[in-house]
Design a protein around this nucleic acid. Structure first.
Lengths: 202, 202
DNA sequence: GTAGACTGCTCTACACTGTAGACTGAGGCC
DNA sequence: GGCCTCAGTCTACAGTGTAGAGCAGTCTAC
């Protein structure tokens, strides 16, 4: 069986996504997917060569959900629309977010999206030679932010506690009242505003 | 056995790190660590409550290797020193990098490092209320960049190939000659320069 | 000097994982 | 009828994390 079947691929990916959403990435086993599809685990191997390929396809499907911003808008509005879209996506499927940073996404959907980002940066006046780099900078930050959020890298052990604990943390003490934000939307928005200043200094 | 032993923890972490470096994160099993330490798998559970705790400790050890920049330097030099240090660390232990983004790091070493970053940002004139956010922005980018690098998110399927393939990728075609950089050090340096402009607009 | 507690470890076992390999039964085509 | 392909099953293997019981040696108290 060298050639893979495609007929039921979408159905399988639906099942996988549902499991990840409901019970987390750890619960996403071939057996679990198979059971949900109503089939034997080994039947999945007719549609995906192995689990990694299934996960790759899942990333593709995920990025496919990312809708590009209306091309009529300004470059800044388009960039921010994609950034917020990515973050909303991350909140909708938190368990799958870590996959985004670990698997290169080369599905047609994803590439088309990158093209739109390139165009926005070109429109913003970024020199051609810098456009791909700045796109990577932005997407790296956005994905990193999303991963950090869903993994609790930001929220776990609020800095406020740290400030109280350590005697030799002068900066923490000085910043005590600002350490633990409660509005991550606002933080993300502020970060985006800062990053836009990189693209076109005001 | 509620209380954990600490005597051989460093030895165990050494073994775990060596395995990850030599054979990758997937090979980092409790059995493999135990064998390397010269002990039965279950003996490890006297030192770490479970595998997750062992991995957390590994992250702590990793961040402990990050040396803070010389406090005599300018805020910019200090920030960049930590950023480059983090990236070097990532290249030294690629398999462990993904852990950095997924586990909140609250070891004393790590917190002390964050304190130094806070201080650098304060010295740079960032308003107190913004300092923790900007620190998160920077660290998120640096870690995200490192993760992307070691996971091949950047390099896999060079953009040049994409540019040739798609007919409806105008920006890709225009940028064809700039899509695939070969000097990631330079890219990282340029990114850092851009980010420094966020902190103190020139 | 001996009883008992504590320490550090081993052994066995269980429920799970991804997946290779061989097989079965149904449908279409000559 | 004979044959081929397809879709799926069944069995099996080597590996995983870890619960629970048990065992030899050392330290302490009487």
């Amino acid at each position: 069986m060298r050639k893979l079947k495609t007929s039921r691929q979408p159905e399988i990916l639906d099942a996988a996504m549902a499991i990840a959403d409901e019970r987390g990435l750890d619960a996403l086993s071939m057996r679990a997917v198979a059971e949900r599809v109503g089939v034997t685990p080994m039947a999945l191997y007719g549609y995906f060569r192995n689990k990694d390929e299934l996960l790759d396809a899942l990333v593709g499907r995920l990025l496919g959900e990312l809708t590009p911003g209306d091309p009529g808008r300004t470059w800044q509005e388009r960039l921010e629309a994609v950034a917020w879209g990515a973050r909303r996506l991350a909140h909708r499927h938190p368990a799958l977010v870590p996959l985004l940073l670990s698997r290169p996404s080369v599905t047609p959907d994803a590439v088309r999206l990158v093209d739109l980002l390139y165009q926005a940066l070109i429109d913003a006046g970024v020199p051609d030679a810098d456009v791909p780099r700045v796109e990577r900078l932005l997407s790296t930050f956005v994905l990193g932010f999303a991963v950090s959020e869903v993994n609790g890298r930001f929220t776990d052990d609020s800095g406020a506690a740290r400030a109280r604990r350590g005697a030799d943390l002068p900066a923490h003490r000085r910043l005590a009242e600002h350490l633990a934000p409660d509005d991550w939307d606002a933080e993300f928005a502020a970060d985006l505003t800062d990053l836009m200043r990189i693209i076109r200094p005001v």
